[in-house]
Amino acid sequence: MSIRNTLLIGCLVAGSTFAFSEAASAQAYSFKIASTSYSQPLTQIESFIGGKKVETVRYTLGSVDRLHDGLLYSSYGDRVINLKNSKTTLKKVEDSPLRITKYKNAYYVLTISALNEFSLTKYTLDFKKIGQTKRFVGHGRDMIVTGDKLYVLANNMRTETNSVEIHTFDTKHFTSLHLEKIKPMIFAFHFRHTVNELKIYGNKTEAGEELSIASYDLKKQQGKIVLTSKQPVMWVNETKALSPTKDLVFNMYSMLEVDQKTKQVRVLYSSKQALIDYAYDSKTKMYHVLEGNYETSNYRVKTLNSHFKPVDDYKFQSIGRLMPFQVL
């Protein structure tokens, strides 16, 4: 056999091997979809590998829109399931929990208790109430517990114009330690703890829904807006660090890259459908994005590579009026 033919066969084999490994990798994509019913007590988590459903687990709890830290619950009800202990045992908490956070040997629960009012309650790890529920002014949006302090992000709607506020409490009795207004931000969706600061994501004005980011210094107890952009955002659900200076901002409209150093904001991914949730697979470095059209009940999970380019597309239609709310 000639050297030329040998090299040609070698290239074909190498190419076939590469193609096979790519195909095998594509088939190995795995994710889970959590869906809930708003008409009956039913929530299910479906597992998919290579686009094929391999398992379905059902829970007797409906209207669920929260699945964090192994807890399944609804911001419309007062029941929670600890997925790590049991899929059938329902525990009772204060009505309308927005965030349940485990810290040391207790659960801290942020709830909406009335119009423009949030409440804080502490529970044992078996959800037995500790002390009294305390209520405060403001529409609670998010909660972080760290360093024996509890921080609540709230939108106060009693002022002439909406104001964004950071509340600081102790974790023992929910004693108010500090209240900081983030001016001139008028609405906030989400905040994140990064070393010695809280990063707040919201809107600076009502018109245009432009992205606004503020920083709250935990030591100085001072907040200020550090970045504004013409890029619109709606319901910022999650953020994470892509690098020491760049953040990923996930919202209903798009996935954005925010460069804190250059103050530049660029779109990494967007869709004609609403972006509902995403999950990042650190092993494959892939992003699984749940998106959909609520009116037609058509949904899909787009798999994006590390450059946020679509590499796979799983389409599905909700069955039995189940609405997907999270991808895992």
Results as ranks from 00 to 15, higher is better:
25 S>Q: 12
273 Q>R: 11
212 S>C: 00
194 T>E: 13
176 S>I: 12
164 V>D: 11
277 D>I: 04
15 G>K: 03
118 F>I: 02
170 D>C: 06
163 S>I: 12
149 K>F: 11
283 K>W: 09
206 E>F: 10
134 K>C: 06
164 V>N: 10
164 V>P: 08
270 S>Q: 08
91 K>H: 15
233 V>H: 07
6 T>F: 15
90 L>Y: 06
217 D>T: 00
107 Y>N: 00
249 V>K: 11
323 M>S: 07
260 Q>M: 15
152 V>L: 10
13 V>N: 11
282 S>V: 10
19 A>Y: 05
148 D>C: 04
135 R>C: 00
98 L>V: 05
328 L>K: 08
246 K>C: 08
3 I>C: 14
123 Y>P: 02
268 L>P: 02
16 S>R: 12
37 S>Q: 12
290 L>G: 01
296 T>W: 09
280 Y>M: 10
24 A>P: 00
318 S>P: 07
192 R>Y: 15
95 D>A: 13
195 V>L: 13
306 S>M: 11
45 I>R: 09
242 L>H: 11
228 T>L: 03
135 R>T: 13
319 I>Q: 14
206 E>Y: 10
185 M>V: 13
183 K>Q: 08
207 A>H: 01
70 G>A: 04
196 N>W: 07
113 S>V: 06
10 G>E: 14
91 K>P: 00
178 H>K: 15
65 D>T: 09
155 N>E: 05
321 R>I: 08
37 S>K: 10
197 E>Q: 15
284 T>V: 08
285 K>H: 08
3 I>E: 15
208 G>L: 01
265 V>C: 02
304 L>T: 14
216 Y>A: 01
38 Y>S: 07
125 L>P: 02
251 N>M: 07
20 F>I: 15
220 K>P: 00
157 M>Y: 12
303 T>R: 04
177 L>P: 06
146 T>F: 11
107 Y>Q: 01
181 K>H: 13
58 R>S: 15
171 T>G: 12
129 K>M: 13
139 H>G: 02
308 F>T: 14
46 E>A: 12
55 E>I: 03
327 V>F: 05
12 L>M: 11
124 T>E: 11
151 Y>E: 05
141 R>M: 14
147 G>H: 08
182 I>G: 03
238 E>W: 09
150 L>A: 07
12 L>K: 02
211 L>H: 02
171 T>L: 12
27 Q>K: 09
229 S>G: 07
104 K>G: 00
148 D>I: 01
185 M>P: 09
82 N>R: 10
289 V>C: 13
269 Y>L: 06
258 V>Q: 01
163 S>A: 14
276 I>D: 03
13 V>I: 15
259 D>P: 02
44 Q>D: 06
84 K>M: 06
222 Q>M: 05
187 F>T: 05
166 I>H: 12
263 K>I: 12
112 I>G: 05
127 F>S: 08
67 L>W: 12
292 G>S: 11
161 T>Y: 01
138 G>C: 08
201 Y>G: 09
184 P>A: 04
17 T>L: 15
24 A>W: 02
126 D>I: 04
236 V>N: 12
90 L>P: 06
316 F>P: 02
190 H>Q: 03
72 L>V: 06
301 V>F: 08
247 D>S: 13
295 E>V: 03
43 T>H: 06
204 K>V: 00
76 Y>E: 09
251 N>I: 06
127 F>T: 08
